[in-house]
Design a protein around this nucleic acid. Structure first.
Lengths: 255, 255
DNA sequence: CGCTATATTGAGCTACATCAAGCGAAGTGG
DNA sequence: CCACTTCGCTTGATGTAGCTCAATATAGCG
């Protein structure tokens, strides 16, 4: 692998800014500058509902969401599903954050293009590359942070708070206030993300709509007239997207 | 810092096997071989209920549980508490897995001795040390794995399943079957770990006791006559402790 | 314009929370 | 050494949030 140590992984630290991989057919990508041989890259196209299985084969297999929205989800033996996180365009997912036991998947919430990069063959070099290590560490760290917030929400917020939190999370991804937010997922998916069932989600959304906190244009499009009002109803701050990036980019969690 | 690159961090990979730091007054520790100057080390003694605040000052401040049991917990504005994980002797906690916003703490579930090691001054060297990076990565990875399991549990198990899962988790820490397990925490703490309230926990424990799945010697001591029977009642496998270590020690998530 | 998948809404039930009383073990002070 | 307090656990009675099941309604797509 031809791999220019100076800059190659700089874009890594901004996982969310990664767009499309040149190998994958598009302009730029975390792995673009590494010029990994074609053999290490595969593209997957997933129709909504399809999924890739996560196997525990080391943290050097990465998936990058190129197009659409995906979710990392686990399934219990009896079919219960829990969505662990929602992933947007640019997200980098380490293939084996999976547990040994539980079945874990990257699932397409909408039609998706996923670029798979397997760097296992270069494990030895990468391990001694501080930039690469820092970047993957950061990836893991951000994921843990999100997971922690999500966990606390499931443990201690009631259903109305969960749905409000979810809507606020979605709205927070759009910098411009009052703009139209599009939900990338069904009521069922939202329920599986929030630990509720889809009927309840629907019911609660109606209640929230009637309260005026949120205005729905369609079942999947809404605006938030007053975000502060939403936050005032929640006992936690709603995490701003890229917050981790912005703050850690400077000092960094692993300098 | 005098720091022998060959072996120094070998013990790191087995976070759970770390016992006591020589600087801290005891035999062996992840940082023992690094011989960090005294100035970077502080000991804390915490009475049950006391806690250390996590601040977001980089991931190079570590806490090691030397004695007793602790918990990482978050608090909401209105006082609601969620225990994120229970930490036993030997656990290494990275000070700033905390979020920007939420208040997060390392709390003593029983009286505790905590050794604090601040490696921030050596950030530059450590960053280029593959062993150190691998070890901290592993730390983060294990934590994410636990967090994920916990999250799925909170999202999709009912209260009885949660309590059973908790008991099985505790029992799984003791290799020898049928031995006496001691709960290191109050009903309130268990509730805050499981997203329930303490009355419910107590009630459910009674129900489980009556079912014979678990035998209580005292409110905090029990045995599990048949672990398989407990697992059969759960839709998920109970994570074996050190599983991550054992399996990743060989192949490793980050070789 | 029909058809299918998804969303909404209601009625009824259950699991869990809340509130409140009682109990037992450990600690404290006279 | 024993009364008294305190703290944590247990348990019951009662309310309610959220689930289940079922009946429409609506959206999106051919």
């Amino acid at each position: 692998m031809n791999y220019d140590s100076g800059r190659k992984l700089h874009s890594w630290t901004g996982a969310n800014s990664i767009s499309l991989c040149s190998e994958c057919g598009s302009s730029e990508c975390a792995f673009g500058k590494m010029e990994p041989p074609r053999s290490s890259i595969h593209r997957h196209h997933l129709e909504r509902g399809q999924s890739l299985e996560c196997h525990d084969s080391g943290c050097l297999r990465f998936w990058i969401v190129e197009l659409g929205n995906a979710a990392i989800s686990t399934f219990f033996r009896d079919g219960r599903r829990q969505i662990l996180s929602v992933e947007y365009v640019g997200a980098v997912v380490c293939g084996s954050m999976a547990m040994e036991e539980s079945e874990q998947r990257l699932e397409a919430l909408t039609d998706c293009d996923i670029c798979e990069v397997d760097l296992t063959p270069w494990a030895h070099e990468l391990r001694r590359d501080p930039d690469f290590m820092t970047a993957t560490f950061q990836l893991m760290h951000d994921r843990l942070e999100k997971s922690t917030t999500h966990l606390a929400m499931l443990g201690r917020l009631d259903s109305q708070e969960r749905v409000l939190f979810f809507l606020a999370e979605m709205a927070a991804r759009h910098s411009d206030k009052g703009s139209i937010v599009t939900l990338p997922m069904s009521r069922e998916d939202i329920a599986d993300y929030l630990g509720l069932n889809s009927d309840s989600v629907s019911r609660i959304l109606s209640r929230i709509r009637k309260s005026g906190l949120v205005r729905f244009l369609s079942p999947t499009e809404f605006t938030v007239p007053d975000i502060a009002a939403v936050e005032r109803r929640l006992p936690v701050a709603v995490p701003k997207p890229h917050a981790a990036q912005t703050s850690h980019g400077v000092g960094g969690h692993m300098p």
